[in-house]
Write a protein that binds this DNA or RNA. Sequence first.
DNA 1: CGGGCGGTTGACTTTGGTCAAGGTACGTGG
DNA 2: CCACGTACCTTGACCAAAGTCAACCGCCCG
Lengths: 272, 272
Amino acid sequence: MSEVFWTASTPAVWRRGLPAVGDSALARWMGIDAPGSPSGALEPYALRRVPEGATLVAEGAPARAIYIVQAGHFKVVRTAEDGYEQVLDFIGRMDAIGLEAIAAGVHGNSAVALQDSTAYAVPLPELESLRRRNPVFAARLQTTMSRQLARAGDLAWMLAAVGADRRTARFVIVMSRRMAEEGQSRLRLRLHMPRRDIAAAIGLAHESISRSLTALAAGGLLRVHNRDIEILDLERLQAFARNTRGPAEKPEHLPCIGDRRRTPTLPWAASA
Amino acid sequence: MSEVFWTASTPAVWRRGLPAVGDSALARWMGIDAPGSPSGALEPYALRRVPEGATLVAEGAPARAIYIVQAGHFKVVRTAEDGYEQVLDFIGRMDAIGLEAIAAGVHGNSAVALQDSTAYAVPLPELESLRRRNPVFAARLQTTMSRQLARAGDLAWMLAAVGADRRTARFVIVMSRRMAEEGQSRLRLRLHMPRRDIAAAIGLAHESISRSLTALAAGGLLRVHNRDIEILDLERLQAFARNTRGPAEKPEHLPCIGDRRRTPTLPWAASA
DNA sequence: CGGGCGGTTGACTTTGGTCAAGGTACGTGG
DNA sequence: CCACGTACCTTGACCAAAGTCAACCGCCCG
C-alpha cells in the first residue's frame, strides 16, 4: 500500500520525445499500404519534426494541410486576445490535427507539441483526391473527425461539473478512458502536460488542480506523484464524478469529498 | 432610443414551428439534385417530424442514422447520470445531427427539438455508399463535421471565460456570428432557447444569465427583451468579451462591468 | 552547487450558486 | 373579450466555493 509504482526518479525520456512508431502502422492507418499501393506512398507527405513547445499549426493561419501525428503528444489550444490559452484537446499518435480548418479555410486552433514529436502533413489540395482515390483513408478520416466530435462532448462534460474536485475527477476518468482506448493500462496514467495545461483544459486555476488531486488522493481514490496518477478505486471515482452539482449523492457511503474545509485530510477516509 | 424593435406581442409563430424550407435547397445541399440524379432522390430518406420538446436521437441508442435538419432548431445535450443536462450545441437548418456517433456506433448525445421541427434521416448503412457515389454530399458532410469541430472550439471559448458576464457576452457574440453565417442580421438576434438552456450551455445558473444580460444591457452594450436581443455596441461587447480573466483591460474606457456590486445600475454608465 | 520551473499549501477575497419571492407574457377556458 | 394559470424571466439576500496572492518545497538541468 505504501509502495510506489513510479521509479524514484522519473526517466527523462518520458519528459522528452517518445520513440517513433513504425511508419507501417501509420501507412496502414492511412490505407496507403493497401494492395496496389507502393509502400513508399508516404513519401509525398512530409514528415515534420516538432520540438517540445513548438507550434505545429498557428490559429489564424490559412489552412494548408492537416496533420497525422506519428509520435509524441500535442495540445490543441485557442488563444484569447489577452493571451489566455484554452486547451481544447490533447492529441496523441495516430490522431489528426487541424480538421476544424477544412470548413473555415483558416485554423481556428493552434497545436503545440508537449514533447518532441513528429507528424505527417497532408496538404489540403491533395486531401480531396486522396479521399476519392482511397476509401480506407476516407473512412478513417471520417471516423477520426467523428471521434474528435465525441471528445468535444467529453470536454463539455468536464467543464459542466461545477465542483473543482468533480471536474478534476472527470478529467482523470477521461484520460483513463483514452489510455484504455490506446491499449494502455486504465489505472496507471501518465499525464503528458503540466498542471497549468490541465487547468486551462478544465477551466480552473492551477492551484485548484493541485488541491483537487490532493483531496482525491486523500480520499483514497487516487495516488498522485507529479504527473503519474494511479487510480486506486475506479468505482468510487466514477461514482464521485457522476453528479454534476450538489453535495454528491446523498447515499451514505459516498460522502462529499469537497468537504475538505480546514483539514485536507478527509474525515470520512479516516474511518475506513 | 427608447423605441423597441420587437413587436409588442411576440408572434406566436416564432415560438412554434418554423416554416419549412423548400426541399430543393436541401437537395442541393446534399448534392442529390446533381445532373443525373432524379429530383425525387430525397424519397428514400424519411422526413421525420419532431414536435417541440421531443427527442430526435437519444444518447446511448445505437447509431442507425444521421439527420439533416430541414426546419426548426435543436439542442444537442449530454445528460449526466444525475439528470443534469449539459447543452453542447444548438443546431439549425441545413446542419447535421448525430455525426459523433459514426465512430462510436452509439449516440453520445441526445438531440431535442426546441420547436416543432423536421429532419431527414440518412441511414448509416447507406452513408458509406452515398458518400462514395456522391462527391458533393461527401464534401458537404466533411465540411459540416469540420464546422461542428470549430463550434466545439466556440463552446470551450465560452466556458473558459471565468466571469459570468463575460461568458454571457461571448455567448451573445457566438450566436451573433452564427446568425451572420446564416445570412441574418448580426445585431438583432432571436434566441430560440429558454434561459435554462443557455445556462446549461455555458455552465451557469439560469439566474446568472438574467443578471449578466441585465448588466450588459445596463452597460449599454445590449438591449434585451426576453429572447430578443439587440446588440447596441458590438465593438465594446467584443472588447469586453476579449479578456478571459481579470477585471477587464485596464484601459480607462473599458471599465469592468462585473463591478456591479450593490447597485445593478452601472456607475460608469451614468457618467456617459 | 545554484537557479528556475513545476508543484503544493495557506490566507484572504470575490464570484456566483442557492433559496425565495415577485413580475411578465402567453395560452386557455369561461 | 377577459380572467386565470402556468411557464419563463427577473431580482434580492446569503453563503460556500474557488480565484488570487504569496510563500515554500523539491526536482531537474545547467
